[in-house]
Design a protein around this nucleic acid. Structure first.
Lengths: 207, 207
DNA sequence: CAGTAATCGATAAGAGAATACTGATAAAAG
DNA sequence: CTTTTATCAGTATTCTCTTATCGATTACTG
């Protein structure tokens, strides 16, 4: 229960606050209240206040929080100012879409290169990010200090790719392949299942 | 506490079980225990058992569950056998990647068409899914009984697109744009923020 | 300068989910 | 046929997250 422990649920909302604060026009003044944020994001005001207290803790009654300070605190706490290098394996359609998506950089993650075993995919994309042969991945990761690996290959080769990433010294893996991967406990794994989100929606509407 | 109420957390895991059961080779026999499933998915055995009890409830000691029956129960309960039609708005890189991804259909959702306002994008993709001008969306949704809309446009036009989808009679929206949308309470909204997942990972590894 | 309104922080209460525990059941082994 | 082992089901406990409540603080208003 030290100052570093932030609940997962709260952590998940922090980027939301950051995004919302950044999207506000400067016209709205230099300060903003938790109540206003809650209205903007359709959350409870108490929850917003609690979340913000975990990272910042300086709010004045009747005034609210200083916007620039709040943004700073959020960014610092999320570690967004250090850029983490990431690689992506699997230059299929989804893989290339993520490669070309610039939105990650504002969250502190930079995808520096893509890898693929298919020779046809080995080309320099128009967005300056190279797609390299998978065999070079270990040396590349070592050279560029890559901490994070993204897997967008089919489920057949996902575990194989995963093992290679782990061997390359990756610290965290973001897996889009619809399968469960085995990783050492020292490596952080986040499973992304897009179809699952859809399935949830589908189930809700057909009730 | 009737048969219809399943917790959101459980519901989110059901597709995992389904996927795992389907991926098992037939060699493993016709039955499987909750303990085995738990091992395969790195979950607690008790949790698996509890989840399965919510949809099936027939398990024998020492034996486990009958695999085919379990798959049937899962599929029926998730409503996967009815195919829901979906449209996607925003034929950018991510949009096209999702359009071309076939994996959704096994979860009961079929993306039947993409829409975009950009004339250059109006073409028939190689995967037989048409990309149409956005102005036709209302009539298209009515004709094909579309229940679900996917938004992959930039945040600038997301709300506008959302309103059009709602006006077209959509029941649920899956939004990839990094912004909060306003929808009537009758419409189900699921926000997908890919950058958020990355941010979470990044925060964890830099601790 | 006093009163009012808005907001904050903290503690407490509530709900929901994960986990642990206990007893029961069925197959397998001796 | 009895004992052992693996598994299931149900209850209870614990944990986490959310929501509610209360007093305190600060700006605004008359």
């Amino acid at each position: 229960m030290n100052g570093y422990s932030i609940s997962k649920a709260t952590l998940g909302r922090l980027p939301l606050y950051l995004q919302y604060l950044k999207s506000l026009p400067a016209v709205n003044g230099a300060t903003i209240s938790a109540t206003a944020i809650a209205r903007g994001l359709s959350l409870g005001d108490v929850q917003v206040r609690k979340d913000l207290a975990a990272v910042s803790g300086a709010g004045k009654p009747k005034i609210g929080y200083e916007r620039t300070k709040l943004i700073d605190d959020l960014e610092r706490h999320l570690g967004y100012e250090r850029l983490t290098n990431a690689v992506l394996v699997g230059a299929g359609k989804l893989g290339r879409a993520l490669l070309d998506y610039d939105g990650f950089e504002e969250f502190g993650v930079k995808i520096v290169a893509g890898f693929d075993c298919n020779e046809q995919a080995l080309q320099i994309g128009k967005n300056t990010k190279p797609i390299l042969p998978i065999k070079d991945i270990a040396s590349y990761c070592a050279e560029y200090n890559v901490k994070l690996g993204i897997i967008t290959v089919g489920k057949g080769s996902a575990q194989d790719v995963c093992d290679q990433l782990v061997a390359s010294g990756i610290e965290a893996i973001w897996n889009f392949a619809p399968c469960t991967l085995k990783v050492p406990s020292s490596v952080l794994l986040k499973q992304e299942n897009l179809a699952l989100s859809l399935a949830y929606l589908n189930n809700q509407i057909s009730k």
